[in-house]
Design a protein around this nucleic acid. Structure first.
Length: 202
DNA sequence: ATCCCGAGGG
DNA sequence: CCCTCTGGAT
């Protein structure tokens, strides 16, 4: 059934996907725990003031905090994006790395953000396990673990790599639209009839 | 008032 | 495992 969901759900275009690799990296870091709309609202001012890694790496944190204040977590995010700019400049020669291992060494980039970069910058197959994706997979009965690495292994054993990206995007979309953590909208869910957890809110 | 999300640190 | 950090949703 995971492959059915991966194939038949609507595309959910990322508001960040048309930007340069550097801009996408910074946007992804700012997107943690926030909406793409909130992030997009601050990016023009941010990139106008700090067009690339050298400028952002040299930024004064308090100045960055003012610009990104509305995205939340602004203190750590300001330090993270400045640190990320310094990291790609000093460790990666100014380019955004293309592997999970390298990406997660960038300040503010965890496995979820790294997966988004692999998908949107490099078109690499990636299973992007965020809490929405994991919750849908567990409720459908395809995994029973919380650990993202082990849950990713369970999904990789079921889905061929050519479906990983669409499954990531569409199961995330499904989780956000119907499969709520607290009170899932099973009455509106298109696969409730096939879901072992339908109506149980478990 | 409480929960929800991702990253990072203890 | 535990917890913090913001803002938005309920």
């Amino acid at each position: 059934m995971l492959d059915v969901l991966a194939r038949e759900y609507p595309e959910t275009p990322s508001l960040l996907s048309h930007r340069s690799p550097f801009e996408l990296l910074i946007g992804v870091i700012l997107s943690a725990q926030t909406t793409d709309e909130q992030v997009n609202a601050v990016l023009p001012a941010l990139f106008s003031r700090y067009p690339g890694p050298p400028e952002l790496a040299a930024a004064v944190p308090a100045e960055v905090e003012k610009i990104i204040h509305s995205v939340g977590f602004f203190r750590r995010k300001a330090l993270n994006i400045i640190g990320a700019a310094a990291h790609v400049r000093d460790v990666q020669g100014g380019t955004i790395p293309a592997t999970m291992d390298e990406l997660v060494r960038i300040p503010g980039v965890g496995r979820k953000s790294a997966g988004v970069i692999l998908l949107h910058v490099y078109d690499k197959p990636a299973i992007i396990v965020d809490t929405h994706f994991g919750r849908v997979v567990r409720r459908l009965g395809y995994s029973d673990v919380r650990d993202p690495v082990r849950l990713e292994r369970d999904v990789a054993a079921i889905l061929p790599p050519e479906l990983w990206n669409s499954a990531s995007m569409r199961l995330n979309y499904h989780g956000r639209r119907y499969c709520f953590a607290r009170k899932p909208a099973c009455g509106n869910c298109p696969v409730a009839a096939l879901c072992p957890s339908a109506g149980t809110s478990g």
